[in-house]
Computed example of a mutant assay.
Amino acid sequence: MFYYVYGLLHSEDYHERFADNLSKELPRIPAVKKAEDFWAFSKAGRALGDLHVGYEEAKPYAVELKLPKGYTYDDLEPEHFGVEKKWKFGGTAKDKDKSTVKYNNFITITGVPLEAYDYVVNGKPALEWVMERQMVKTDKASGIINDANDYAIETMGDPAYPLKLFQRVITVSLETMKIVRSLPALDI
């Protein structure tokens, strides 16, 4: 039942049909008419649950990294992976290129599939959540510094963790949308 609900809550048809209600109240879970639809939503919900819970184990999506002339990925030192302020999209402010993301002053990510931005969590693409959270930020009220680099090195033991997380979330986003788009029409 849990996976049926999880699958149903990811249905694009469900979101469209109940958009007005979802903006005002808790979601209501309708019963589908056919058993095969129930099992399709349940199977999709299980696959989505496994994917979302296990995002740390997802295979990093193969993006291209633009590095300064003469550098290869193997030449990079831990300090090259340090994130700074908010990541930036390529292009201009008026004409953003979301297939390109400036990770830091040393690394630019290219080849990000635009379809990966279709997976939205709480009104924002999951990739943009990563970009927003994996940086160095000082809380104005308390002065506390939230440094994603410290977490990457001290907790994860990998200075490239923010970059690899971004690549994993690309994989998770693409796989999520593949599953969501394979869901049956909502016949209730």
Rank of each mutant, 00 (worst) to 15 (best):
D150T: 13
E84M: 11
A44T: 05
T171E: 07
L48H: 03
N21C: 01
G70D: 03
S11E: 00
A40L: 08
L51M: 04
E175K: 15
A40Q: 06
L174T: 09
V121K: 10
V136L: 06
E64L: 14
P184N: 09
V5K: 03
V63H: 02
E115P: 01
H15M: 05
F38L: 08
V32F: 02
I109M: 10
A62F: 01
V112Q: 09
K178M: 06
K85I: 02
P184M: 09
P162D: 04
N21D: 06
E25A: 12
D118F: 00
A141P: 01
I144K: 15
R181A: 04
K69Y: 02
E175G: 02
E77I: 13
S173L: 03
T138I: 15
D50I: 07
A35H: 05
Y71S: 15
L65G: 11
L165K: 14
K164R: 14
K88N: 04
K94C: 04
D95H: 10
Y14A: 09
A148C: 09
F81L: 11
I107Y: 06
V83Y: 00
E115Y: 00
L183R: 10
Y151P: 04
H10F: 04
K124T: 13
D37P: 08
V169I: 15
L67S: 11
H52F: 05
R181E: 08
V130T: 05
W87E: 08
A35S: 08
M135Y: 04
V121A: 07
I188V: 13
E128Y: 03
Y117S: 00
Y71D: 11
D20I: 09
M131A: 15
R181W: 02
P78F: 12
D13A: 13
V53M: 10
Y103V: 06
L163K: 10
D37L: 07
S42Q: 09
M177I: 11
D187R: 13
K140V: 04
E84W: 04
K33M: 08
G143A: 13
A93L: 12
D147I: 09
G90K: 09
F166V: 13
N149G: 10
L127P: 07
F2C: 08
A44N: 05
F89P: 02
D37H: 14
V121R: 09
K137P: 02
D150M: 11
Y6S: 01
S182Y: 01
L65M: 14
D20K: 12
S42K: 10
H15E: 02
V120A: 06
A44C: 06
R17V: 11
E175D: 14
T176Q: 07
V112E: 03
E154P: 01
P184H: 06
H80K: 12
T110F: 02
Y61E: 11
V112W: 02
A44H: 03
D50F: 06
W87T: 09
P27S: 05
M177K: 14
A185S: 13
Y119P: 00
L163A: 10
V53D: 09
L67M: 13
K102N: 04
Y6R: 08
G54L: 06
A62I: 13
F106N: 00
E79G: 11
K178F: 01
Q167N: 10
I170G: 05
D50R: 12
R28W: 02
F81Y: 15
A141N: 14
A47Q: 12
I170D: 04
V136F: 00
F38D: 02
Y55T: 10
A58L: 09
S23T: 12
P162I: 13
Y161Q: 15
L186P: 11
A58P: 12
I170N: 03
F81R: 10
K178Q: 12
